[in-house]
């Protein structure tokens, strides 16, 4: 029973935090410094790990696909498989998972320690709503940076696939042929579909991580516990949302 109320509590406070943050949207222009700082943290510093991971995801996709497709002699379609999988599914999901691990955990740790050391209380008594100063710039920066990260993940993944396709003996497909197939079967709407997913997942991850951080109570141990919870909840939400969002977006194609 306690767990159920805790989950409902989490849902409620997350929605409340979202509404509160959005109600301060008008203050964003004068918070441009915080916004750009968050863009730097959320976008730029996450870029290397996104690039490395998507490169290898694209590569392994091509490798596995080449291995199973050679039985049917359909290796020439590897480009379409890598292209669609990266754009529609793996690009956005990988970006969201990395965001949870790298940015979400840092956000929760920072806000939780601010809460535990009463900095949040100090803000409240100074009549500076934490939702305005701490949450809004992060959410706005996420909305701007996540699509950029997802596009880079797609591109790097496609290139990873192309390199494997050329240099693996059992596949041996020239990049020209690989990209020709990729372009024939991967359309703009597929990429857009992936970007919508990435945007949604990224937003949910950052919102949930902010909320868990701000609702931390106790001491240093609870900061650690909050970070763990934030990452676990984020990962669950990403994968559960992924299924339902995919189902909703499918008929719209």
């Amino acid at each position: 029973m306690k767990q159920i109320t805790a989950i409902l509590d989490g849902f409620g406070s997350t929605w409340l935090l979202l509404v509160r943050s959005l109600s301060y949207a008008g203050t964003l222009p004068r918070q441009y410094r915080r916004f750009f700082e968050q863009c730097y943290l959320i976008g730029y510093t996450t870029l290397p790990i996104v690039a490395i991971l998507s490169f290898f995801i694209g590569s392994v996709l091509a490798l596995q696909a080449g291995y199973s497709m050679q039985n049917f002699g359909t290796q020439q379609f590897i480009g379409s498989l890598v292209g669609l999988s990266m754009a529609r599914e793996l690009g956005p999901v990988m970006v969201a998972i990395l965001l949870a691990g790298r940015v979400g955990s840092a956000i929760t740790a920072e806000l939780a320690s601010m809460k535990v050391y009463q900095e949040i209380d100090a803000l409240v008594t100074m009549n500076i709503p934490p939702a305005r100063m701490l949450v809004l710039p992060r959410l706005a920066a996420t909305l701007v940076m996540v699509p950029v990260l997802a596009i880079i993940a797609d591109l790097v993944g496609w290139f990873g696939g192309a390199i494997v396709a050329k240099y693996t003996a059992m596949i041996s497909i020239e990049p020209e042929a690989y990209f020709a197939v990729l372009r024939r079967y991967t359309h703009f709407k597929d990429v857009l579909n992936g970007l919508i997913k990435a945007e949604l997942f990224g937003f949910v991850v950052v919102l949930v991580c902010c909320n868990i951080g701000l609702n931390t109570r106790g001491g240093p141990r609870e900061i650690g516990a909050s970070v763990t919870r934030a990452v676990v909840v984020s990962l669950i939400l990403i994968l559960v949302l992924d299924y339902f969002v995919t189902q909703v977006l499918m008929p719209l194609q």
Partner: peptide
Amino acid sequence: RMALVFQSGALFNSLSVYDNLALYPREH
């Protein structure tokens, strides 16, 4: 306008002393 001086101080650790003091007038 109410000000609470916390037992721990509750200073913003990520900001310098100057920015700690300037936060309220800047935000308002």
